[in-house]
Design a protein around this nucleic acid. Structure first.
Lengths: 264, 264
DNA sequence: TACTGTGAACATTTTCACAGCC
DNA sequence: GGCTGTGAAAATGTTCACAGTA
């Protein structure tokens, strides 16, 4: 079809903040665990602890969904599970294709929470003919020639890209052309997609780098008398290249003058 | 001396906003690509496009690092690569342990951007004795009994948890007890850690659920005359449980009264 | 001229604190 | 009494728009 969502009439969705949406799956997981233990009700404080957020935030989040709690008591676990599932669109089963069945793709295919909570692996797809027919997590891998057919026949609207970075964009283009409108991208590339297609990215090295940033800060903080415990910078492996044509005297650091990386 | 930054007067870290930190790896990747193509300079506009952000944001982000550009020209690619690398703490090599060598752990071990950009896989660890000694991505798997020893001897401060959810917390506890202060968690659990330890989480099913939320919105918007194209809810698999002792009449939806999921 | 760097406006998100209800 | 729901305040993040400058 490729028609549809042309305009999007200013009403930019029925105001659930994006930050809240991103936390709903967290709440849902915590609630599901409570439900399995047959816990009937839960307070915002308890649930917040289980989900790893603070209770004020949780209550605010829930207030965007509606008034689903009972003052003086808390929230009915089953009822909330249902409401959040519905809000997230998990009362239906979304067929998903995974493209690129390497170690990562295989891991995703075998991921438990997949089949269970609202998603169904419609197909595993790989470009390598040697993979074709091989069952991974019980599902036979199909060749990428079949991609368009599968998407159209199964009405797949969510695709997962677990290919090498080099082919991610072309896989993405094919997915979109065939009708996929939501993509989860594990390849370390920026994908460009037309309006109306959502892309979310999961990137190991980015997460690690963010950790390294904070780790470095910690190291810098504790060293003081402990000195360089094999960590803090000095004699960097990479020579600091001067900006072209600079005298090297005027560079301004964020809070005054060139900080750190000054080997005395 | 190796001292220097002695005081750090309460200044809760030298104010680089968290949102900016999270984007630095993106810029770094784009810059590295340019560097490999021997591009000498780049404008905020070009770099922003390559990184998938807008240029005002990028300039603002860089302004927190210092004045590293040249008006009328742009940014020196090599110089920026160095400055961002340093800021992220990537001019040193961080040893990392990966715990849990299933498909996911193996995928992480083999991840290219790993060894290259500032990180070194110090050890692969698995609880299964059958795995011990088996090389994965060229590195022999070690038994979890060795965990503490490895961490202490190698001065590992970053750990990656790729185990099943059930054992993630205990693995986490052991990592922390042994000296790890930054954890990247792939298990679908909330980890509790003492102050001073950073945890970042990567969670497939959360990302998928966020996509499903938006996907559902799209479906809801276009359908109207298109009706139920096998997607929109109705006759939900899960019966909507009423909150205990409710008459079912007073529930309030977010903008008035029970919206959506109303089969006419 | 063509670009960066940045105050100031705007938008979103978090937190506080307390009124309202069971 | 205990807990939710929510305005209002505070903090954080984004965008605008333009002064400054190589």
């Amino acid at each position: 079809m490729a028609t549809g969502r042309t305009h999007r009439p200013a009403t930019r969705s029925r105001g659930i903040p994006e930050a809240t949406v991103a936390r709903l799956p967290l709440y849902l997981r915590a609630l599901t665990a409570l439900s399995e233990r047959s816990v009937p009700t839960v307070s915002s404080e308890e649930l917040a602890a289980a989900a790893g957020v603070n209770s004020a935030k949780l209550r605010k989040d829930f207030s965007y969904l509606g008034s689903y709690g009972t003052r003086g008591v808390g929230y009915d676990v089953e009822y909330l599970v249902y409401q959040i599932s519905r809000e997230l669109g998990l009362t239906q089963d979304w067929p998903v294709v995974i493209v690129g069945i390497g170690n990562l793709g295989a891991a995703l295919a075998g991921y438990g929470g997949f089949a269970s909570r609202g998603f169904r692996v419609a197909a595993l797809i790989d470009a390598d003919p040697a993979m074709t027919g091989k069952p991974v997590a019980g599902i036979p891998v199909q060749h990428s020639d079949e991609l368009e057919k599968i998407i159209e026949e199964d009405g797949v609207s969510i695709g997962v890209i677990a290919t090498p970075a080099g082919v991610a964009q072309q896989v993405c283009d094919r997915l979109v052309a065939a009708g996929v409108t939501s993509i989860l991208n594990f390849a370390p590339t920026v994908l460009s997609v037309p309006d109306g297609v959502d892309v979310r990215k999961v990137d190991l090295s980015i997460e690690l780098q963010i950790l390294a940033f904070h780790e470095q800060r910690k190291a810098g903080e504790e060293s003081n008398a402990e000195a360089d415990a094999g960590a803090e910078a000095e004699a960097p492996a990479v020579a600091p290249p001067a900006p072209r044509g600079s005298t090297g005297a005027t560079r301004k650091g964020p809070d005054g003058d060139v900080p750190a990386v000054m080997p005395a």
